[in-house]
Design a protein around this nucleic acid. Sequence first.
RNA 1: GGCCUGGUAGUUCAGCUGGUUAGAACGCUAGCCUGUCACGCUAGAGGUCGAGGGUUCGAGUCCCUUCCAGGUCGCCA
Length: 447
Amino acid sequence: MSEQLMGWKRTDYCANFTIEDIGKPVTLMGWVQTRRDLGALIFIDLRDRSGLMQVVFDASKFKGDFSQVEGLRSEFVIAVQGEIVKRDDETINEKLPTGLIEVKVEALKVLSKAQTPPFEIEDGSKVRDELRLKYRYLDLRRPELQQVLMMRHQIAQVTREYLNDNGFLEIETPMLIKSTPEGARDYLVPSRVHPGAFYALPQSPQIYKQILMVSGYDKYYQITKCFRDEDLRADRQPEFTQIDMELSFVEADDVMAVNEGLIKSIFKSALDKDIETPFKRITYKEAMDRYGSDKPDTRFGLELVDVSDLVKDTDFKVFASVVAKGGSVRAINVKGAVDTFARREIDALVDFVKIYGAKGMAWISMKSEGMQSPITKFFTEDQLSALLKEVDAETGDIIFFVGDTDKIVYDSLGNLRLKLAEKLGLIEEGTYDLLWVTEFPMFEYSE
RNA sequence: GGCCUGGUAGUUCAGCUGGUUAGAACGCUAGCCUGUCACGCUAGAGGUCGAGGGUUCGAGUCCCUUCCAGGUCGCCA
């Protein structure tokens, strides 16, 4: 049965105590993370959103019914009263921020018992999404997820602080709006008072922020939900939050400067990272030509090389005809990686680029015992040496080629580039390289 | 809508060319244990192998249908 607090007040969160608090009487409340039952001595790791604290129940010191302690199980919600004590040197836990101390418990209240959870509440959980969502309230107890939501809070706060300091007004705009198509499908909400008519949910507050500018509010922002009724991706939800803003009487550089400052503040506050400003800028065209993407990851090389001119007059008809039709042939040289890619792995990469519409992919392996490639036989010696020079080929390299329309070449090599970087471990975790991509085309070909 | 991968114990997974009683780890239950922190030791419970049909002497395994999930392309700034 559950007990009431009956006047117990929590002293502080579990992980907020330090060696400064030794000797203090405290009251803690939280969830049972783990229990280690040694008989007349029972350890409980008590968890709340701050972290863990080891609490110790010693049968000879505990002032309540010890069988109640023996009955504690995972995820019981309990309150304990006791004293913060220093741990003996040999019982210090260096893995725990609170590992120098523990709570010697005198009194216990079981506030809520719990059934055995359907999965363990721990970081790095590999439980399938469906089950996690069914028991969302349990999944959200994981420290990992609590960190994520706490970081969101932090980001929202620093965003408000920064934009407020820069003269922006936070203004809400309507959620039930007239459909203003932006390209994505709108979510629709049936109207009760106008049968047969529908509201749309905003894909962005675009129209409303423009009204605000026309009306003279000058600088506006809003941390707001947006909705797009399209299929999901691992990194794309139909409902998402964006920091929306609009400024009057400014030019592109002013908008970029404000955002650089905002992003710098967010990185500092949320990750304690110092970001250099101003950010690098590259044009859309340069991004596509060098990385095959309009949102390039510039933390590693593997840049694309346009070899269209060098293959357009060769006997390799596939490449020659692609160039003749206005497409291009581009290459990625993976330096020193020839032994990383056995024939089977090359074939897997060929299949990979086919996802993006490529009909195939050619390669040249610069093995120490000689070149291997399905295409070099089509080239004259001069053509081949010019090609190898252009891609900076040396012994040990492997070079991949895709020839097609620009769109397919960019898509397939741009994605191949990311896959290669992942496979080769070229992206250092926790590093950032921010940049602006400018001069986006006003229109795109629709095919 | 297309393609790929998967669905076996509470969870994560293994289960080969079809062959006795479907396994492991963690979790769970019971007992023992006063310094554990992945506690340990002993014992134990736990399965409609997603569903339906077919092939076969025999199906978790092969075939068909279907449902569900994840990823991805299309789509989407």
